[in-house]
Nucleic acid binder design. Structure first.
Lengths: 158, 158
DNA sequence: CCTCTTTAGTACGATTTCGTAGTAAATGTT
DNA sequence: AACATTTACTACGAAATCGTACTAAAGAGG
């Protein structure tokens, strides 16, 4: 148990640090930027608010990130026809390409896992990890009377 | 496998977001600040550079964080006697107290895990998690000829 | 001793993140 | 239809982060 606490501590600043160290493909891209592109690649076009939720970031931060990415030509934003308020975010060709490069690197890391684990271990690991993630998510409000609904770090829908 | 990639994506911006949502004990404390205090509580007094390594942050960021924490009275820094260059960082009484409150919350979350898992699952989970962390750490340099030695997100010694 | 290099940290400016305060479109409510 | 409310987002300023350039102490070689 103490070991887990220890491991927990090691999740310090700079999530994805290892990735952008590896990924000096395009120098001028933030970790958040990459993260955003990956989400769009995986989930398809999304409104700003859903994107922010996926990122675990406040909407105002998402605005900044989206502005950067738009300026750099990796995404495009267009108002939805049904609802003029929602801005649909879409990957451009360059954006999609960069995201795919990044995806490959992640996939390479994951396949390292597959190489290191037996299929049973892999199965176990995935199952337990999801179970744990669910506990952490639902357990967020332990000592709190009323949690303000807010973007959380890890969200698992069933 | 696709599931793991999905889970991977969800580790967006704001690590520890859930914690400082829960932890509105002291309003005026950053996630990095808390993280720092926890590391000091767990590891004891440390020089700036080791602290930065534990945090997975560059030394210059650590300087900023330490300055904040010192100003707020949670840590103290003193030059080592053997080596005037190293500044030993120590928790003050207030710092230790805050860190302990924070630790309790984490421990509460971890005991939720223990409640949700059987002892075997717990054992399995811990083992696999460490194994995975090791793979990710060593595997950081997949596509790279030469990785600059740099603070990484997850470090497992052993 | 006197350089030369390495190690440990700080300073500073540029960029990023985020809370608060807006705006404007959609959705009630009467 | 005239309003209030809610929803989806942006603007802006304050704070946090981090790369680069520095300083100063320790150690090395002659």
């Amino acid at each position: 148990m103490q070991e887990l606490y220890d491991l927990f501590l090691k999740t310090g600043l700079r999530p994805f640090a290892f990735m952008s160290d590896t990924l000096h493909l395009e120098q001028n891209v933030t970790r958040s930027d990459l993260s955003t592109l990956l989400i769009l690649l995986f989930r398809g076009d999304l409104p700003m608010s859903e994107l922010a939720a996926e990122m675990g970031a406040p909407l105002s931060s998402m605005t900044s990130i989206a502005k950067r990415l738009e300026r750099k030509g990796y995404i495009a934003r267009a108002a939805s026809v049904q609802d003029q308020r929602v801005k649909l975010v879409t990957l451009t060709q360059e954006g999609r390409q960069l995201a795919k490069q990044c995806e490959q690197i992640i996939m390479a890391m994951l396949s390292r896992l597959e190489a290191a684990f037996t299929p049973e271990e892999m199965e176990q690991f995935t199952t337990l990890l999801f179970k744990a993630a669910r506990v952490f998510q639902d357990g967020g409000a332990i000592t709190l009377k009323e949690t303000k609904s807010r973007p959380m770090k890890i969200k698992i829908e069933e």
